[in-house]
Amino acid sequence: MTTTTEQEIITLTNQVFEESFEIEKEKLQPQMNIFEDLGLDSLDVVDLVVALQEKFGVKIRDDERVRSIRTLGDIYQFILNLKTGGASAIVSDQKE
């Protein structure tokens, strides 16, 4: 996967948080906990899944891995894994 594509994932995911959840761009850092830091709740997660499906053209509603997502970085990685079959990592401090 190219760096550009990784950046695209970050950009498109951040767009979802800005458009659907009205979160300021500055707060959209990979280490941010989507519940504690960004203020989402369980109902928002349902809508997050719908928005990500639409943004990336994927089907993730029944994917068990969604339940373990805690940070924005987790989402980047989750989408990246979907797109690359788990062959790459998106955040520099994570091991490939």
């Binding site: 928002d44 719908v50 089907k59």
Partner: peptide
């Protein structure tokens, strides 16, 4: 209904 009915697909329905 416009979201759901064309393809009879509920997966794009939001919680809200």
């Amino acid at each position: 209904f416009e979201t759901m009915l064309p393809e009879k697909d509920l997966s794009q329905l939001t919680a809200m």
